[in-house]
Write a protein that binds this DNA or RNA. Sequence first.
DNA 1: TTCGTCATGTAATGGGTTACATGATTAC
DNA 2: GTAATCATGTAACCCATTACATGACGAA
Lengths: 185, 185
Amino acid sequence: MLEIAVLGLLNESPLHGYEIRKRLSNLLGAFRAFSYGSLYPTLRRLSEAGWITEESPLDGPAASATRSRRGKRVYKLTADGKEHLAELLADVGPDAFDEEGFGARLAFFAQTRSDIRLQILEGRRRRVEEQRDGMRSSLARTGQRLDRYTRELHEHGLESVDREVRWLTELIESERSSADNGAEA
Amino acid sequence: MLEIAVLGLLNESPLHGYEIRKRLSNLLGAFRAFSYGSLYPTLRRLSEAGWITEESPLDGPAASATRSRRGKRVYKLTADGKEHLAELLADVGPDAFDEEGFGARLAFFAQTRSDIRLQILEGRRRRVEEQRDGMRSSLARTGQRLDRYTRELHEHGLESVDREVRWLTELIESERSSADNGAEA
DNA sequence: TTCGTCATGTAATGGGTTACATGATTAC
DNA sequence: GTAATCATGTAACCCATTACATGACGAA
């Protein structure tokens, strides 16, 4: 998941690690903040895979010997990386529909083709509907036996997924109508 | 987290591993289902700590030599385990207020003292309020710059935490009024 | 010159999952 | 007797976090 987030960010502009982390925190909302302990190893890995390049401003033509080997390292997406990102964003496999995968894709929807956007939104909705139906029938079956608190927890959970389904439906409808406009214009 | 869930379940009745997993799945809702790969090692660990006992029905007086060493293993909470569980449920440290920790405690609220319940509910509410305020101000600051999808994601997230705050407030109020009745009765 | 914040990194650990392997019991 | 499901268990892996260590740089 870090992979898609990092590549997605670098597709907008080159950045260094510290900055990536800050952007990530407010892009993915307060609800997800990766630590450096996972970020830097990921950057290393992506670099080794050839998807990003790692460039120290000090490496340039006038690299002075007095400077330490440590300093800002700026990361850029390569052509291979762009391609890889496009594949990741267009992947409509099961991972795209769980909470994390969906969130990561949605955050970069602006870079995603409209028909893929629709597939992802619909897949996510299907997934959440299944979850809702499971919760609903489990509550209907065993709801009476549950103590008050557990029942409250389940009911609140059910309402939450129900809201998510409605939200997704709105997004899907607005996506469809803008796709129509785009296609027929 | 598995620890508190397992001890909490065994406080109600002795159970074997397979059954624990089933109960857990519908107790914690469809949203959390531990695998055997974590459950059995946990049972082992709790047993070694002396919090539960592990008893095979075949170990009894008439243990026949023809039976294999494998079969249902029934787990029971020990006196030490009961004590330990009470400590876990009454622990109002920071862990009690995050999503997982709060969920686990709420699921066993029926076994928790009323004043502790109130502390946990209030601590959780404080935590979620902080989250909400962070999201709200971040949305106010950078909301205009965000693309439509990212903004939708943030707004939906904000509404969700907002709903959770209101839900917690209701629980707190009903907890307070039943505490009053209980104390003055 | 020292303090705060920007910036990069590593080692140990954690808390789980997946995939696999096996045995016991029940229903047909 | 065989298929489904109940039941227990392990090994390899994954994806992160925490705690720690270090260094660069600007402002008071």
